[in-house]
Amino acid sequence: MSAMTEQTDPMIAIQGLHKTFTLHTQNGATISALQSLDLTVSGGECVVVRGASGAGKSSLLRCVYGNYRAGGGAIWVRHQGAMVDVAKAEPRTILDMRRTTMGFVSQFLRVIPRIPTLDLVMEPLLTAGRSAEEAREQAGTILTHLNLPQRLWSLAPATFSGGEQQRVNIARAMVWDYPVLLLDEPTASLDRENRAAVVELILAARSRGAAILGVFHDREAGDAVATDTIELRANRLAA
């Protein structure tokens, strides 16, 4: 493959994606979250997903990450040079993709209690095989960029404010240069200054060639990073 085509080949190619939840504990009611969705994201692009609450934005990102199981269609993601369909991949393959290819910023931090912040941020680098020194240095750099005071680095984030926890979350997802980034409201609960720091990180990721799919609760941050936008519409079918 030439360097030329590599630039324009999609990193994410979603074809006819469906997602329906069947709530067995509620008499089998169904909720349709995504209907025949098509979408491609290439390296260097940031597609911003818009839509009202409940439109399926988080479901889309979670399906791509393999956190939700796709109900139909294909979710091709370029992993180590080959396109892999997350909708059909083995758990082991998805875990491998999460180690080196896909980073995800969720709305909430969910980690083991008692682990210091610095260790949490180093973890993705260690998992990907980086040395402890290198991991420590990079973790420190990104935490500094996100204005997380150094006195917090040795503490577990359980007692942090929402905004501080969110920045730990972002640091964990962006400390490693994942080729694919899935960002679910990364700037929620951040003040203006920290929002700007996150926007800066996203723009840097874009210019190094990452393919980014993001949801932003504030229009300004979304507009600042978007190369393209799509709009989702809620389509609930109760049965």
Binding site: G66, N67, Y68, R69, P91, I94, L95
Partner: peptide, 12 residues
């Protein structure tokens, strides 16, 4: 399945 998938989007 994947732990987080089974816990966040259980099918059965």
């Amino acid at each position: 399945g994947l732990t987080d998938q089974v816990l966040d989007d259980p099918q059965h």
